[in-house]
Write a protein that binds this DNA or RNA. Structure first.
Lengths: 210, 210
DNA sequence: TTATCATAAATTGGCGCCAATTTTGGATAT
DNA sequence: ATATCCAAAATTGGCGCCAATTTATGATAA
């Protein structure tokens, strides 16, 4: 069984190029509306042409970029109507499982949520907008996971990406961020109290003003 | 070096190969679990290798097929847990906009729904399972469209594809199909009466036993 | 100076080849 | 007869070339 495979040092590409581009879109490095030239991406991410093309096709499927035949791909610009429609969807889903979340949450779960909320709070002062954005994402992901429906969690994660093209610029004011922080703690309190109805209201309010 | 470009009669491919494969998966022609060899698809749909690969990658993104590196792609086998989780999602979304549907529906809308429901009824006796399946889809699509949230309609359409891999075999008994028919009419009556609460109940029941 | 058009440069996107890996089939030894 | 192993065939998947189309450039005429 001595299949001597040289196994060269050639596997630093554990992550897909798609994720790299996705990340740069979400952090605003690749601005909404800008054209994504294949040559640029090829050099920027040190990958081959087919890889770039596959990534762009995947992102187009997820509607994070738009494809114009013979013209190329450009980052989707956030659409007002679309954004509010997605918000409505998120409210239906995330608020819809509020009672499940309140029912399933154990003591350590609540602790974990408090930690994540605290991390968000700390980053308000000392973190970059990107770190803040990701901390917020982590909190909501953890909270939603308690509903027990993994398909739903994945779906929300997916449609969330679909609109927050330039998430960094989304939270304009400091006041708004601190309001978000307060709401996080309200949600946690409702979870700790096992109060599904209150949690549902808190989630709905939180999503509406995001 | 004379590259003779015959320009054969080769342009009936206005539709993407992805949709063709998708259709064949949904109608059960390509059975769940079966391996999709690239050569076979290439010949079956009269297209090139790269086209097949792109289509398979897209379907893998939508999780209609699964990709095993160096082994190929095979049709996803329906998973019990996953199916019930998707049902729950559909209930949250479709029942969640019941009041919107009831509020927005005009007289001609109701008429159109009655026509679609009737077409479904007619196909119970004279149609193929596939036709029945598509008539059912058309009815639900039309009904849901009344909510006014196009993002939500698209999303439901998408996640619906995700689980009903072998939709034909899904409605086992005649009794169940006729039950579905009755529920369709119940929903329409609720819409016509502008009764959102009753509609919500009817939709939830209908999805649960699908 | 400004508009129009032709030519050149750049970009996209289709297609096929070939290496890497896996599967199949059969021969050999126990 | 059965298991093991090796070789051949089949399949996947990465990569690059080149044609088609679009965009940029510059020259010419009004």
């Amino acid at each position: 069984m001595n299949k001597v495979k040289p196994r060269e040092a050639n596997n630093p590409t554990a992550v897909d190029v798609t994720d790299l581009i996705l990340h740069d879109i979400q952090t605003g490095v690749l601005a909404p509306g800008s054209w994504l030239k294949q040559i640029d991406l090829e050099q920027r991410y040190q990958c081959t042409r087919p890889e770039v093309r596959r990534a762009l096709d995947r992102l187009a499927q997820r509607r994070l970029v738009e494809h114009v035949p013979n013209r190329g791909y450009h980052v989707y610009e956030p659409d007002g109507r679309q954004a509010s429609e997605v918000s409505e969807i998120r409210i239906l889903l995330e608020a819809g499982v509020a009672d499940k979340i309140a029912a399933n949450a154990s003591e350590p779960d609540v602790e974990a949520l408090r930690d994540l909320a605290s991390r968000f709070d700390a980053l308000i002062l000392e973190g970059t907008p990107i770190e803040l954005y990701e901390a917020n994402l982590a909190f909501h992901h953890r909270l939603l996971s308690l509903c027990g429906n993994t398909e739903l969690v994945n779906l929300v994660t997916e449609i969330r990406q679909r609109t927050s093209s330039a998430p960094v610029s989304q939270w304009k004011t400091r006041a708004r961020i601190e309001q978000s922080s307060r709401e996080h703690h309200q949600m946690i309190d409702a979870v700790a109290a096992g109060d599904g109805a209150t949690l549902k209201e808190a989630i709905a309010r939180h999503i509406r003003q995001d």
